[in-house]
Design a protein around this nucleic acid. Sequence first.
DNA 1: ATCTTCCTGTCAAGCAGATGACAGACAGGA
DNA 2: TCCTGTCTGTCATCTGCTTGACAGGAAGAT
Lengths: 217, 217
Amino acid sequence: MIHILVVDDEKPICDLIDINLSTAGYHCRCVQDGLAAIDLIEKENFDLILLDIMLPGADGFDIMEYIRPLKVPVIFISAKSDVKDKVKGLKLGAEDYLVKPFDALELVARVEVVLRRFHKTETILSAGDVTVDTEARKVMRKGVPVVLTNKEYGLLVLFIQNKNVALFKERLYEKVWQDEYIADSRTLELHVQRLRRKMGWEKNLVAVYKVGYRLEI
Amino acid sequence: MIHILVVDDEKPICDLIDINLSTAGYHCRCVQDGLAAIDLIEKENFDLILLDIMLPGADGFDIMEYIRPLKVPVIFISAKSDVKDKVKGLKLGAEDYLVKPFDALELVARVEVVLRRFHKTETILSAGDVTVDTEARKVMRKGVPVVLTNKEYGLLVLFIQNKNVALFKERLYEKVWQDEYIADSRTLELHVQRLRRKMGWEKNLVAVYKVGYRLEI
DNA sequence: ATCTTCCTGTCAAGCAGATGACAGACAGGA
DNA sequence: TCCTGTCTGTCATCTGCTTGACAGGAAGAT
């Protein structure tokens, strides 16, 4: 299930977006206040954020700067149609910028473009001789099925979605365990080890000292 | 150098786009005909394609379907502002859809969003024969990977981001160690020394007496 | 030039902390 | 009950960081 956060101070607009995205099969959460939004974003793992610019509490640009390190994709949705605002939003790292009033179908289409870009909707992932069918939750290596536990599977998907990117331990832990990372526990390392063996990734899944791990393909 | 293909039957619009993207540092190639575009796309490796919809030869949607397997990112640029067209274009796999007439700055900003997403830019730093992929935390010299420790890596990034600028020891220490600099310790100098050797920078990374270091490229 | 003083480069060694490997404990489901 | 998946604890090993000592070099004063 894909979780989308809608941040807009006008309740009717939130509801409108909610209805359309829910119909398209996504789960929405709405907030009207900027500071509340930051709180929520840090606590929960959203797949996408729709962000209004003029907000009480903290404005959209502030929120964007604040949450940028989290790498959650953002689409700005604003009544401000000035090119300067659009450019500012996009330069801040947003994936798109929609001007209100917008057509609901276009919104859904653009949301799906972003989700597609982030490989959230692709059901077949692959890396080297490994392929993953996320819908069937099946993993194949050289055409041979591999049985993975839940945690191993979660790690695998994250690594494949981030090939050749160094992933921080904190991020891995938060995504797979949805919990705070405890530094003096061997848990994460243990599961990485098992994944390495099962996938034959002894050489590919390398430890980045003091940082985390990286899958090299 | 990033190569962008512009497909539009109106020469003045091609020129306008060309001027703006060239100014932003990209290389443009223009074609007016749909079939010619398909030819070019198959022969050359473009990083991005700007595609008009109404074209002689083959229309933009046809081209899109045809080249989709190549996975080259596409932005539609069309006078057709109907939501149905937008949705069709985006569903076909395009990364964005701009309606003519558009603002040149917005075009450049949106082009950069797409390039950013496809890792064509921004995460790669370079200085001389050294390149750094900040996302993968990987360093290459003359195409050969170099293994650096964390502190060495931190220093390297700082130096490359400040080519030909003298950096104070205090600043280096604070950035890499996030700590107060202790003058009577050889720590910083030692790491600089190791970095010099690993990168072959014996001549380039010079000590600035009583101040710090400067990377000369 | 010569001297003094401070700064930088170099080496070896030691230490703290991170990783890998393994055994065993624990909980929940068949 | 057993079995599977997950977590904890321990130990050996390895890596990266720091320290201390010392030689050589630069800058400024004489």
